[in-house]
Simulated scan of single mutants.
Amino acid sequence: MDTDAPMSPDWVFSNTSNVSVAKNRAWFTTYTSFTTHIGHPYFDNSDMAGPIEDHEGRIAAHFDEKKTLLCLKLSGPPVGLVTSPSLFLKETRDPGNVYTIGAYWPDSERARWEAVKPYTSEEKAWLKEHYGGEYHFLQEQDLSMHKDEDREEGRSLARSIMANGDSDDDQEEDDDSNSFLDELEADPMSHVADYQFSQEQLDWIKKHYQHSGNFLLSYGLKPFDDEDCSEGKAILNALMNEDD
């Protein structure tokens, strides 16, 4: 990637996308996502336009309505790098062209990314508390800290263990821990949706369906799809109420 080439200063908000894409890593030292409400600049809706604020109320960016697309105006490019002229100014665009942007990942890829994305600070703290850190956790799983594919597998496994409520101490005392790992190895989707359910619900699922993956799939629902999981929880609540 050529970090010396001029970069466009525009960051475009796309409501037809389900992922965020940056074309140059040099924009980032650290990154924090922000939740906002957005609308079309031609609509007069003050709740859906304006600045993005962080959790302390500081303005992180605002929307530039002079552009043909909804562009975020940030403080500036990375230090030492120059930017090319905006590609989306109304004054410079070709009136004969239509500008659209969309970036899409299928549900399967989004689920894979959720499983292997870098650890959050909370997940690092969990690893430190129960295993002494990522290195020791990987050692226990016969995985290498020096292989990217092993670290990805480790992150997926750690998140499944966290979702199931198990820890290193629990595994020594709980006879079910081996079956949990066996299920995960046999079917990577078996416990992907565990975090969607309460412990009481997981206990009920275990009694009747073995694991959450089986439960959801038995109703034609995908364990890695949030909407399907919401539908699954509604079905589960109805089934549990029938048992009471």
Rank of each mutant, 00 (worst) to 15 (best):
M1D: 10
M1G: 15
D2H: 00
D2I: 06
S8E: 03
V12K: 11
S14D: 14
T16D: 09
T16G: 08
S17R: 10
S20A: 14
N24L: 10
F28R: 01
F28W: 14
Y31I: 13
S33V: 05
T35S: 13
T36H: 12
G39A: 12
N45C: 03
D47L: 09
P51Y: 01
E53R: 08
E53F: 04
E53S: 04
D54P: 10
D54A: 00
E56T: 04
A61H: 01
F63G: 03
D64F: 03
K66P: 00
L69Y: 03
C71H: 06
C71R: 09
K73C: 11
S75V: 02
P77A: 15
P77Y: 09
G80T: 05
L81A: 13
L81Y: 15
K90M: 12
K90R: 14
R93Y: 04
P95T: 15
P95G: 09
A103H: 10
Y104I: 15
Y104A: 10
W105I: 03
S108V: 09
E109W: 07
E109Y: 12
W113A: 13
E114Y: 05
A115S: 15
E122V: 03
E122R: 10
E123M: 07
E123G: 07
A125D: 13
W126N: 07
K128G: 01
E129N: 10
E129I: 02
H130Q: 11
H130D: 10
G132P: 06
Q139I: 02
E140W: 00
Q141F: 06
D142S: 14
L143H: 02
L143I: 07
S144E: 07
M145T: 08
H146E: 08
D148Y: 01
D148C: 02
D148L: 09
E149I: 09
E149R: 09
D150M: 04
E152R: 15
G154F: 00
R155K: 08
S156H: 12
L157M: 13
R159K: 12
I161Y: 14
M162C: 05
N164S: 07
G165A: 06
D169S: 05
E172S: 08
E172P: 04
D175K: 12
D176F: 01
S177A: 15
S177E: 03
L184F: 09
L184M: 13
M189G: 01
H191V: 03
A193H: 04
D194A: 11
D194L: 05
Y195P: 00
F197I: 02
S198H: 03
E200Q: 05
Q201N: 01
L202T: 00
K207E: 14
Y209E: 05
H211W: 14
S212F: 05
S212Q: 08
G213W: 11
L216G: 00
Y219E: 03
G220H: 08
L221C: 02
P223C: 09
D225M: 10
E227Y: 11
I235F: 01
L236G: 02
L236R: 06
A238H: 03
A238M: 04
L239Y: 02
E242T: 06
E242I: 05
